Simulated assay, not measured.
Amino acid sequence: MSVQLFTYEEVSTHNTRDDLYMIINNKVYDITKFVEEHPGGEEVLVDEGAKDATASFNDIGHSPEASEMLEKYYIGDVDPSSAPVKGGASNSNGEKSVSASPQGNPLRIIIPLSIILGYLYFRFFVKSA
């Protein structure tokens, strides 16, 4: 039995809630039916879908059960001769549906905000008591 190979470009065209592929560890998954069931919300999958989401998947620290769940959505492997697609791709209707906003770690906002709030709390509530 041969494994179907997908290029990064092919995966990038499956980028809507109704047709969503994702690459994790060089394996391609059709996660369309899982979008509504995802405990972290569907928006996360749509934002990370249609591309290699290995780093995001591993950074979250998914449970072994989550990794096992992937197997039922497995549809093939990434063609090793293909190259990752830069930027978001358009679907067959020419619509750009993958988020075009800059992706980043929310801690870059949360940590400085926490420091400022801690300083203000100390300055006005602890010191004046």
Rank of each mutant, 00 (worst) to 15 (best):
residue 68 E to I: 13
residue 93 N to Y: 10
residue 90 S to D: 07
residue 100 A to H: 09
residue 92 S to H: 07
residue 82 S to V: 00
residue 64 P to G: 11
residue 87 G to V: 01
residue 81 S to R: 02
residue 103 Q to K: 14
residue 79 D to L: 01
residue 93 N to D: 14
residue 103 Q to C: 07
residue 90 S to N: 06
residue 38 H to F: 04
residue 78 V to R: 00
residue 45 L to A: 03
residue 34 F to M: 08
residue 72 K to D: 06
residue 60 I to F: 15
residue 91 N to D: 14
residue 106 P to L: 07
residue 83 A to M: 09
residue 56 S to M: 11
residue 59 D to P: 08
residue 37 E to G: 03
residue 46 V to I: 15
residue 89 A to F: 08
residue 48 E to A: 15
residue 37 E to L: 08
residue 64 P to L: 09
residue 88 G to V: 15
residue 81 S to N: 05
residue 52 D to H: 04
residue 48 E to C: 12
residue 93 N to E: 14
residue 46 V to R: 00
residue 61 G to R: 08
residue 50 A to I: 03
residue 68 E to G: 12
residue 33 K to L: 12
residue 55 A to T: 13
residue 101 S to F: 13
residue 74 Y to N: 08
residue 97 S to D: 11
residue 38 H to M: 04
residue 34 F to I: 03
residue 58 N to F: 12
residue 89 A to L: 04
residue 54 T to V: 03
residue 44 V to Y: 05
residue 94 G to M: 04
residue 98 V to Q: 14
residue 64 P to R: 10
residue 105 N to E: 13
residue 92 S to F: 04
residue 47 D to F: 09
residue 36 E to L: 09
residue 40 G to F: 01
residue 37 E to D: 10
residue 60 I to H: 15
residue 68 E to W: 10
residue 81 S to W: 00
residue 71 E to M: 15
residue 104 G to V: 05
residue 44 V to H: 04
residue 53 A to C: 09
residue 69 M to L: 15
residue 43 E to A: 10
residue 86 K to E: 05
residue 68 E to C: 07
residue 64 P to W: 07
residue 86 K to Q: 04
residue 82 S to N: 00
residue 55 A to S: 13
residue 42 E to N: 12
residue 88 G to W: 12
residue 86 K to W: 00
residue 33 K to I: 07
residue 70 L to E: 09
residue 65 E to I: 10
residue 36 E to Q: 12
residue 105 N to W: 11
residue 75 I to A: 03
residue 44 V to S: 06
residue 41 G to P: 06
residue 35 V to S: 06
residue 77 D to T: 01
residue 75 I to Y: 03
residue 50 A to G: 05
residue 100 A to F: 10
residue 36 E to W: 06
residue 66 A to P: 05
residue 79 D to G: 00
residue 40 G to V: 00
residue 61 G to E: 06
residue 103 Q to G: 14
residue 37 E to M: 05
residue 63 S to K: 10
residue 78 V to L: 03
residue 78 V to F: 02
residue 71 E to G: 12
residue 106 P to S: 07
residue 82 S to C: 01
residue 50 A to Q: 03
residue 38 H to K: 03
residue 96 K to A: 09
